Amino acid sequence: MAVLASKSTRIIVDENISWRLKKLLSSWDILPVNEITAQERLSDFKIWQFAKANDYSILTFDEDFWELQNLYSFPPKIIWLRIGNVNTQAIANLLLKYEESIIHFINDDNLGVYELYL
């Protein structure tokens, strides 16, 4: 698929999503949380701060990031997977299915949360 983005489409993958997603979506700029720092487990707020400072969106299953966005607005943008317990390949397939919409979401300064359902 052609790159449609005018802004960065960098995505931090929350710890509850496998780092293997990076391999399945090799054309995406994905940073698993565990690659940010090896020394400590990062709190959601520290992940939020890192994403904001480094122009990342956050891919997550957790509503915690939505709550942070309600408190502090955006960026960072949240891609919220509302899909239950599925394997990494199913997540990759879902993201690829909606890739164009996700890119448009990231580039729209008026939107902060993109929810994906199965």
Rank of each mutant, 00 (worst) to 15 (best):
R10G: 00
F105R: 02
G112Y: 02
V86H: 12
N34P: 09
E35Y: 03
K46Y: 01
N110V: 01
I102H: 09
Y72K: 15
T37H: 01
L42A: 00
P76A: 04
S43Y: 00
S73Q: 10
L21W: 11
Y72F: 13
L25M: 09
R41M: 04
V86F: 10
E115H: 06
L25Q: 07
A5E: 05
N107I: 08
Y117H: 14
Y117N: 12
E15G: 15
Y117T: 13
L71N: 10
V86M: 05
L81T: 10
Y98T: 00
Q49F: 03
I106M: 09
E115F: 08
L59E: 01
S101K: 15
I83K: 10
D44P: 13
L96E: 03
V3D: 00
F65R: 14
L68E: 00
S18I: 08
N34K: 15
A92I: 12
K97G: 01
S18P: 11
R20P: 03
E35A: 08
E99T: 07
E100F: 15
R41K: 14
T60W: 04
S73F: 07
D44N: 15
Q89H: 14
I103S: 06
T37W: 03
E99M: 06
E15A: 13
A5Q: 05
T9A: 10
K23L: 07
D44I: 10
L71M: 09
A90T: 14
Q39K: 15
V3I: 08
D55F: 08
F45S: 10
D62S: 13
L31S: 01
I30N: 05
L4K: 15
G112N: 09
N110D: 04
A53D: 08
H104Q: 13
R20E: 00
L4Q: 11
D14V: 12
R10L: 01
S6F: 10
W19H: 11
F74G: 08
L59P: 11
P75G: 07
N93Y: 11
P76M: 01
P75L: 06
Y114H: 11
I36K: 03
E67D: 03
L118F: 14
I30W: 01
E40G: 02
Y98V: 02
A92R: 15
N107M: 05
H104L: 10
D55E: 11
S18Y: 13
G112C: 09
S101Q: 14
Q39S: 10
L24R: 14
L4R: 15
F45L: 14
I78M: 10
E67S: 09
W28V: 01
I11Q: 09
R20D: 00
A90Q: 13
S26Y: 07
I106L: 14
N34G: 02
R82S: 00
I17Q: 11
H104T: 02
W19L: 08
A2N: 13
I47G: 03
E100T: 12
S26M: 04
N34C: 07
A38V: 10
I106V: 10
L96M: 13
E40L: 07
G112V: 04
T9W: 07
V86A: 04
I78T: 06
R41Y: 06
L59M: 06
I17Y: 05
Q39L: 12
